[in-house]
Design a protein around this nucleic acid. Sequence first.
DNA 1: CGCCTACATGGATACTTATGCAGTACATTG
DNA 2: CAATGTACTGCATAAGTATCCATGTAGGCG
Lengths: 154, 154
Amino acid sequence: MQYIAFLFMSKTARHQAILDLLDDGPVESQDLLQHRLERKGFDVGQATLSRDIHELKLVKGPEGYRRASKNLGTEGVLPSVMHLAREFVVEIRQAQNLLVVKTTVGSAQPVAAALDASHWPEVVGTVAGDDTVLVIATDKQKAHALARRIRELS
Amino acid sequence: MQYIAFLFMSKTARHQAILDLLDDGPVESQDLLQHRLERKGFDVGQATLSRDIHELKLVKGPEGYRRASKNLGTEGVLPSVMHLAREFVVEIRQAQNLLVVKTTVGSAQPVAAALDASHWPEVVGTVAGDDTVLVIATDKQKAHALARRIRELS
DNA sequence: CGCCTACATGGATACTTATGCAGTACATTG
DNA sequence: CAATGTACTGCATAAGTATCCATGTAGGCG
């Protein structure tokens, strides 16, 4: 039944969604969070949110829930993946489910940050050095698709 | 009556005392805080503490109440994996034989170092960025087992 | 002094969050 | 396939926190 896919995707996706919501500012209560998630298509109970919040190590201050180490309101909006890719990506190679993205020297970090922020489902995570970003995809196929997508942005 | 002096000194002094207490580590609940303050000579109700906490803009995370800006200083000694995992690891995702460990911003390096230092047989190696550690395991199964083990540390 | 206003506080209680338990969906193993 | 284990979840409810209301005190002022 379709529950399968739903359940499987759900938790991680929901976590992502929660973090996204929090990037728009703190959320007062679990109830409010529940309703916002609902509007985003996540139907989940308060109990689960309590658990999610614990797992994500969120913190509740006077303003509500927010990410633990999110300090200094440096709300520098990061540039779009498209812009960054076009500007700094030099080459993309694939090795199994991994992509090695070569960038101009010093640009790997911002590119990785942008890829993370885009929350593409194929991207499990990224690690950046100085001129290289390692992108971890769920599997070979996704990695390939992802490579194409990034190339197309250029 | 001495109530005068008591009442007059109280609020500010109590606030100070609360901050002092928190410097020794987070406090789980208002109840606990109440008892600790009592031992220090402050006799105060839960309602008042709720207000104090708000006024001091304290923050409640998984560990309890703490000061908002507390930026956990990780000094020279390499803390145990357990401690680091519990403190900084936010999420663990698996992609094939790799684990993508998300940490709070800036903590990836120390977490990776700790994982390396633990010399677990499943860990082939690690690479750390800013908020992401890539852990390479020998195979899918080991990766899965490893993920569980790290999660259990929390 | 008598009166008024502003605070600080505790008790009771409304409200919010955490958790024990049980059920569902797989995954793995024999 | 049956048996067992793991992950995830909701419901009911326990545990924890915030707030309404009443009280007591201090300071200002005519």
